[in-house]
């Protein structure tokens, strides 16, 4: 078994819990509470401060107060979603009203928790969020690797990969591509090696997990686009 990228990441970087609350008391007490559970904590007094100080490389989650002076928590959430920063967010609020909660959850918040917190509830959610983030990050890393490997494939190997993933046999592939079965087998072997896939099942898992249809130009209409790029 080789060490996955995710495992490397987990070992390299300890997850960080980011707290954004303009109330210093709440902010610092949250640090005190969350640190008691063994997490590393970074606190920010405003959305702006967070955006400036946030290290996307680091795993973790964001505890975000809905009501912030300056840019509100909801605004920040929207912005993070829009810029593709997928950090899991736990919204906290003094007293939640239903519309705000609904909005926050629709935008992808992990949870919406009212102050003051039940420590078990909050820390449970934090753990879930960190796990989620780590999984997300692993998936992200695997996909990046998959994409990198895909980039090593020749167009013919890629054609073969696509059809292998689709579950077609060598003969069928040869027919599809108008080449000999033997040639297909050779491409297939190269492809499997380049993709570091030991089995068809493993290949399918890698490709599916990476959600790389785009990179594979699997869409029927995408093919003509590829032609000019090759020339």
């Amino acid at each position: 078994m080789h060490v996955t990228v995710g495992e490397q990441l987990r070992m390299k970087t300890e997850p960080t819990i980011c707290v954004v609350d303009d109330d210093a008391g709440v902010r610092n007490s949250l640090r005190w509470l969350i640190e008691s559970a063994g997490f590393r904590v970074a606190t920010y007094a405003s959305a702006q401060e967070f955006l400036e100080g946030y290290d996307p490389e680091r795993a973790g989650c964001l505890i975000l107060d809905v009501r912030l002076s300056g840019r509100s928590g909801l605004d920040l959430q929207q912005q993070l979603v829009a810029t593709g920063i997928g950090i899991p967010i736990i919204m906290i609020t003094g007293h939640g009203d239903v519309p705000t909660a609904v909005r926050a959850m629709r935008s992808g918040a992990l949870d919406f928790i009212e102050k003051p917190f039940d420590d078990k509830l909050l820390l449970g959610r934090v753990r879930q969020a960190v796990e989620l983030d780590i999984r997300n990050r692993e998936a992200q890393a695997e996909r990046a690797e998959t994409i990198a490997r895909l980039a090593l494939l020749t167009p013919r190997e890629r054609e073969v990969l696509k059809r292998v993933v689709d579950g077609r046999g060598n003969k069928q592939i040869a027919e599809d591509l108008g080449i000999s079965t033997k040639t297909v087998e050779a491409h297939r072997a190269h492809m499997m090696e380049k993709m570091r896939a030991k089995s068809v099942a493993g290949l399918v898992r890698i490709v599916r997990a990476a959600d790389v249809n785009e990179q594979l130009n699997l869409e029927p209409g995408a093919r003509p686009k590829r032609g000019p790029q090759r020339h």
Binding site: D23, G25, L30, I34, S36, G94, K115, P116, F117
Partner: peptide
């Protein structure tokens, strides 16, 4: 509510420790 939240947080943090 804010200071109460802080109080609770500190308490819980302290307890865990």
């Amino acid at each position: 509510n804010q200071p109460l939240t802080a109080v609770v947080n500190y308490n819980q943090g302290a307890l865990r420790r």
